[in-house]
C-alpha cells in the first residue's frame, strides 16, 4: 500500500459525491469519495492517503492526462517478476510503488534514474483521518 500524509485544503460536494483536495508535500492531490450524511472529513484535517500499488500507472513526462493526480518523480528501483514489475519512485522523499506489467515497463523503456509521471486515479485514493 502506498501511504502519503496530507492536509485537506478544500472539499467540493455534489450530494453524496465528494471531491477532496489535499496538500501533500506542497503538491495538490484529489480523492473522490462517496460519503453518507455522517462524513467525517473537513478542511484543515490531517489525513493519510492510501492507494494500492496496482492502481498506480506510469507515463512519460510529456504525456497529456485526464487525471490530475500525476506527479513527476525519479525511479529509484525496479523489481521484476515473471509478468509484473514493481517500480519504486521517489516522490519528495516518499517511496511510491507502482506495479505494472513487465511488458509495459519495456514499452516505456523505464530504468533507474529516469523521470516519469506516476498517476493514480482520484477514485482509487482512500482517506483515513490521522
Amino acid at each position: 500500500m502506498n501511504i502519503l500524509k496530507g492536509t485537506i485544503v478544500s472539499i467540493k460536494q455534489s450530494e453524496s459525491l465528494m471531491l477532496v483536495f489535499m496538500d501533500v508535500e506542497g503538491e495538490l492531490f484529489n480523492s473522490l469519495l462517496l460519503e453518507g450524511d455522517k462524513n467525517h472529513f473537513e478542511v484543515g484535517m490531517n489525513v493519510h492517503l492510501l492507494f494500492k500499488e496496482t492502481e498506480v500507472t506510469l507515463a512519460t513526462t510529456s504525456s497529456a492526462l485526464s487525471e490530475r493526480n500525476a506527479f513527476c518523480s525519479k525511479i529509484t528501483n525496479i523489481e521484476n517478476g515473471k509478468i509484473l514489475s514493481n517500480i519504486t519512485l521517489d516522490f519528495l522523499g516518499n517511496d511510491i510503488n507502482a506495479i505494472i506489467t513487465k511488458g509495459a515497463l519495456h514499452g516505456l523503456k523505464c530504468k533507474v534514474g529516469d523521470e516519469f509521471l506516476w498517476v493514480v486515479k482520484a477514485n482509487e485514493v482512500t482517506l483515513q483521518p490521522e
Binding site: 480523492s31 462517496l34 460519503e35 472529513f41 483515513q128 483521518p129
Partner: peptide, 14 residues
Amino acid sequence: SPSELFANQNLSGK
C-alpha cells in the same frame, strides 16, 4: 459502532 470500535480506523472505504 462496531466498525468504529473494531476497525479502529475511519477509512473512507464503502
